[in-house]
Amino acid sequence: MAHRLLRSLRRTLLSPLSSHHETLIHHRQPSLSLRTRTYITEMRKSALEGNILRLLRNEIQYELDRSPPSQPLSKFDSFIVDERPGEQWIRLNKKFGENEEIKVEVTMFDGSVPVKKTGNVATEEDVKLHITLIVDIFKGEGSDVLEFVCSAWPDNIEIQRVFMRRRDQMVGLPYNAYMGPGFKELDDELQDSLYDFLEARGINDDLAVFLHGYMNNKDKTEFIRWMGTVKTFIEKK
């Protein structure tokens, strides 16, 4: 009798405790699981970011060791060069004669054409890089703008279009404005005279050679700058 009573009393006393203990474990397990998942996620994030940083550092160092960019020139001939750090274009400015102002906006490399080279053994395909120039010529305060759209190839300038626009108009005229004929439609002698017009103002083959060297350096500089800004962002906590 006493033995059965003791067992009954033990069940009465221990059952609530066991039930309460199981409830605590049940409620604690999701919390422990959440902390584990959070820890694993943070570890993966840290490993991923660490790998990206390692690759960026290696790539930056490789570019600096292989052929580090040089300090960009601030002048070419009589042009003042506005480097525009972090942007995809530069601007050249100069005065010409008594009242002319010349502004040249230049893109980074924005295209290429295939070039076939014949070697001693076989014919291999290469590319010739393209740069766009927009040449604006002003004559005095409030004058209209004579605008040339040109291509700069590695060793020559090629005129694509010539048109007039108001000084307060953005580059690229509205569709209802007459932009003139295609340059190749002009009389050959007139085409040659317009090339001479630009040549006298320093828009010539020497400028094309300079711009290709300048943009090659800028391309590398901007690439390294971009990798550096990405690295700095990822490093932030």
Rank of each mutant, 00 (worst) to 15 (best):
P68N: 05
F148E: 02
W89I: 01
K237A: 15
I80L: 06
S19L: 15
D144C: 15
S193H: 06
P181I: 04
W89L: 14
D82C: 14
Q61V: 06
Y195D: 01
T107G: 06
N51D: 11
D144S: 05
R35H: 13
N93M: 00
R7A: 12
E87G: 01
V145R: 06
M170D: 06
L92G: 00
Y39D: 13
L207Q: 02
D196E: 07
I224W: 04
G172S: 01
D77E: 14
Y178E: 01
L14K: 14
S33L: 13
A208N: 00
T123P: 10
S46L: 05
G202Q: 03
A47L: 12
I234G: 01
I203L: 03
M170G: 11
T118L: 15
D155H: 02
S74A: 12
L190V: 06
E185T: 12
E101M: 06
D82Q: 07
F197M: 03
R57K: 03
V113L: 10
P16R: 03
D168H: 02
Q71E: 15
V106Y: 08
A208E: 12
S112Q: 11
N176Y: 15
D126R: 03
Y175S: 01
R54P: 11
Y214Q: 00
A152T: 07
E158L: 08
L34W: 13
H3D: 12
E98L: 10
L55V: 11
L133W: 00
R57W: 05
K103W: 10
Q160M: 10
T107D: 07
G119F: 03
G119V: 02
S18T: 09
L34T: 14
D168L: 04
H212K: 04
L56A: 14
M108D: 13
Q61D: 14
R7H: 12
E22Q: 05
R4K: 06
K94C: 07
T118H: 13
T118A: 09
Y39K: 15
R28A: 15
I25Y: 13
D219I: 09
T232R: 01
L173N: 08
I134K: 15
E42I: 14
G228Q: 06
M215H: 03
F76E: 07
T123W: 07
T232G: 05
I102N: 01
K95F: 07
L56G: 11
Y195W: 00
